Simulated scan of single mutants.
Amino acid sequence: MATTRGTHAKPPETGRRHRDRKRTRPVAPEAAHDFELLREMLLIRRFEERCVELYSAAAIRGFVHLYIGEEAVTVGVHHALTEQDAVVSTYREHGHALARGIPAEAVMAEMYGRVSGCSHGRGGSMHLFDAGRRFYGGNAIVGGGLPLAVGLALADRMRGHDEVTCCFFGDGAFAEGEFHESANLAALWGLPVLFVCENNLYAMGTALAREHAQTDLAMRAASYGMAAWAVDGMDVHAVEKAARRAVTSIRAGNGPHFLEARTYRFRAHSMYDPDRYRPKDEVAEWKRRDPIAILTERMQAAGPLDASALKKLEREVTEEIDHAVHTAEQAPEEPVESLLRHVTGRHEEVPS
């Protein structure tokens, strides 16, 4: 079923288990959970802000697509998943990787192109990968992860497993043929796939209404016979609740589900993008719906978060990122002798 129609040119109204970290202070279970949500969103935000500094200093190279502003989506969704579930990501993936539990030092080392990176320095920003955590990329091709997600879900089902495969993608990928083929097959075969569309209103520089005749993506996804609904992607509590509802239904054998997380990236499409296609007042309006600020204000109003606790949380995150940068800078690059390892289809001279 699809809900919440409209182009949503304005922000919607307000509405793990993986890292072994020290909790800021002993609190009630609900408050402790909020501390974990806040810490993960802060880690993603501060990690990417550091990446901006490093990129500007030419310490890291290549394409870099920032997730700043969208942190509530990945953090909320990941708290509905287990370690056994599979995750397929996009080229805007730093937040997905960190929320999945890939250590910050492994992600940062990959940004630096060092062998200690999660892809051994060969993938960089767009190709983070960790098979041990069932994190299957990182894909530079728009929509390229969608068929992979269907294949992973089919493989799990054929093995008799009950894992869910979660596939993140953007509103631009929704317009690609891969989405429609993948949605059709997943629904036809009743596969355990959670499709999470991070609708940030722009496919690179193309506004949603210029790309889609019908901008209610959840309603369109429902036409494939799957349960589908929209959620406020700036509210981590709303995202987690929606994701838990979807995952529970998928595990019960109700086939694929679709979440349209209505969100917004605060930065340009990539570090190369001059970002001249978005009205400044639109960007400013969405920044007032900062997911980190929303959760922080809720926690402060409820009592568990005071200025001292927030400062300590920020310090812990900064120390983790400082350590990640230090270890990345000290890590070796791949030896030239091994550059052809894992390379398929390379040309080899035929002896005369």
Rank of each mutant, 00 (worst) to 15 (best):
A155N: 03
L191F: 00
R45A: 04
A153C: 09
A131V: 10
A268T: 05
V343T: 09
T296E: 13
G138R: 03
F35Y: 12
R262P: 00
T318M: 01
H18K: 11
W189Y: 11
G132P: 07
M126Y: 04
G190K: 08
E181V: 06
V107L: 04
A213C: 05
H180D: 08
F135H: 09
M111E: 14
H65C: 05
V142G: 11
R100W: 01
H65G: 08
P11A: 10
A307M: 02
G145V: 07
H180Y: 06
G177N: 08
D273P: 10
R92N: 06
P147I: 11
A309R: 02
R245K: 14
L340E: 07
E337W: 01
K287H: 02
D273F: 03
S223H: 11
R159G: 07
L146Y: 00
L152D: 03
A86I: 01
T248K: 15
G101W: 02
G345D: 01
S223D: 07
E70F: 06
L54V: 05
M299Y: 01
G151R: 03
G145P: 12
I60E: 01
V142C: 08
G345F: 02
P291I: 04
S223K: 06
I321F: 02
A221R: 09
E105G: 05
V231Q: 07
Y67G: 08
V73K: 04
R46Q: 13
A293I: 11
S182F: 00
M1W: 00
D322C: 02
F63D: 03
H79R: 15
E83Q: 13
A86K: 06
T318A: 14
M41L: 07
R244D: 03
F47N: 10
H120I: 04
S249M: 07
V236R: 06
V87Y: 06
G6K: 10
H65N: 04
E211W: 00
A203E: 04
A2K: 11
R159P: 11
R122P: 08
Y277A: 03
C197W: 03
V64I: 11
D290C: 13
A86P: 00
R210P: 00
E176Q: 15
A57N: 06
V75N: 03
H347L: 14
P147A: 10
R220H: 05
K287L: 01
D130Q: 03
S116C: 11
A209K: 09
P274V: 03
M158L: 15
A243C: 08
E30V: 09
D235N: 12
E337R: 12
H33Y: 06
T4R: 15
L98V: 06
D275C: 04
A109P: 12
A31H: 11
V107N: 06
T4M: 15
V239P: 13
V231N: 09
G69Y: 00
R262M: 15
A218C: 05
A213M: 05
H212M: 14
P192K: 07
T3G: 14
K22D: 13
H94P: 14
E211Q: 15
H323G: 10
G303P: 09
G123L: 01
G303L: 05
D34E: 14
E36F: 08
P11G: 11
M271Q: 12
D130V: 00
L146V: 05
P26C: 05
C51V: 12
R210D: 14
